[in-house]
Simulated scan of single mutants.
Amino acid sequence: MSALPHRLQIGLGILVAVAILGTVGFMAIEDMNFIDGLYMTVITVSTVGFAEVGGPLSTSGRLLAMALIVIGAGALLYTAGLAFEFSVETLLMGRREAKRLHARIDELEDHIIICGFGRVGRDVWENLHDGAADVLVVEAREEVVAEALELGALAMVGDATHDEALVAAGIERAKTLICAVRSDSENLVIALSGRALRSDIFIIARALETEAEKKLYLAGADRVVAPQVVGAQRIAALAIEPDVAEFIDFVVSGRLVEMRIEEMDVTAESALAGRSLRELDLRSKSGALVLAVVRENGRMSFNPDPSEPIRAGHAIVAIGDSDQLDRLRAIAEVASAYPQS
């Protein structure tokens, strides 16, 4: 909501002052009650010309009425003009902002769509918006979208259970769809619609009820997260191995600034394709440590066999600081970038 311009605030203040002074004046001069005094002030300032209360005014009452007409009517016209100007500017500004928003959305590529900006959706956005990928929030409630925009989020009004909202969010160019609304049934519809619109998009869905997890997978979700289950697992991990659990939390949340975990795809052109970890010796060449290899079927091999070749279509999961991961990415992206021993 835009703040009222200073001039408009002054105009409204003058009108309030005129209403108070006129009411008090008629009460004192013409011995009227509050309602009659306010009525006389309103019809005088608005120049409506209704009958005077209690018969003709006295000379002092007429002088007060003339003063109210000159000052009050002038203030009313001045304020009405400013209010009209403010309304037109707000309307035009809203249209310009809407056009600018649509233009930004149309430019998005490989972005992440978050459906819902409740407690979970907001937390997800807060963890993603400083990252490398663009994030777009789709939320049905206009007041919540306004909050998201004030926080700096790229957000649009739309019901994500409808295909047109997902299309407007650029789902055909997005890399990930996150279903984080407050209803399992709506998340189910969003996952189903997203999978129908894009067969290759990665879909993550939130589940409130345990029995909804299987249905969300059947609807097309690649991963389903039940916050209450994750919370229970974390509590159990903290109870058994608190130091290890806290270290993982630090790395995953990014609070351990110097360390990050990142997944990198291996293409046919990659220097990694067809070579084993032992042959690549990535640890000494990049400084990053490979934790796992993700196979074509999505199966993740932790602490992978160093003699087993990495194939095109695989992905590696590595840990390191920003410089180490950048060196590893440079090696992984193109064959010519691979440093020779």
Rank of each mutant, 00 (worst) to 15 (best):
L12K: 02
F302Q: 05
F117S: 07
V137Q: 01
M1D: 12
R278D: 14
A237V: 02
V88G: 05
G94A: 04
N303P: 04
G61H: 00
F117R: 04
S286D: 12
A337E: 13
V317A: 06
L77W: 08
A330P: 00
E258Q: 11
I235W: 06
A19R: 04
V224L: 07
P56D: 12
T267Y: 08
A337V: 02
E164C: 06
D123F: 04
R329C: 00
C115R: 03
R255S: 06
P309Y: 10
A226K: 07
K214A: 14
A148E: 07
Y338L: 15
V53W: 13
E258Y: 06
I71H: 02
E213F: 02
L101S: 09
I35Q: 04
Y78V: 05
L277R: 07
W125K: 01
V225C: 02
V181L: 10
I105M: 10
H129Q: 10
A335G: 15
G152I: 07
S253A: 05
N297F: 05
I29C: 08
G313C: 02
P56M: 11
A239S: 15
E172A: 14
L82R: 00
R195Q: 13
K215I: 08
G13V: 09
E241C: 08
L128Q: 06
W125L: 05
R255V: 03
A51H: 07
L68F: 06
I10G: 00
A133P: 00
D130K: 11
Q228F: 05
F302C: 07
D321T: 08
V252P: 00
P339S: 11
R327D: 02
D321W: 07
T210A: 15
E269R: 14
D281M: 08
E164Y: 12
E241S: 11
I10T: 05
V294C: 09
V294S: 05
N187T: 09
R299G: 07
I316P: 01
D31G: 11
D200S: 12
L21E: 01
L76T: 10
F117T: 06
I190C: 09
L4E: 00
F247W: 04
L277M: 14
D222W: 06
E109T: 13
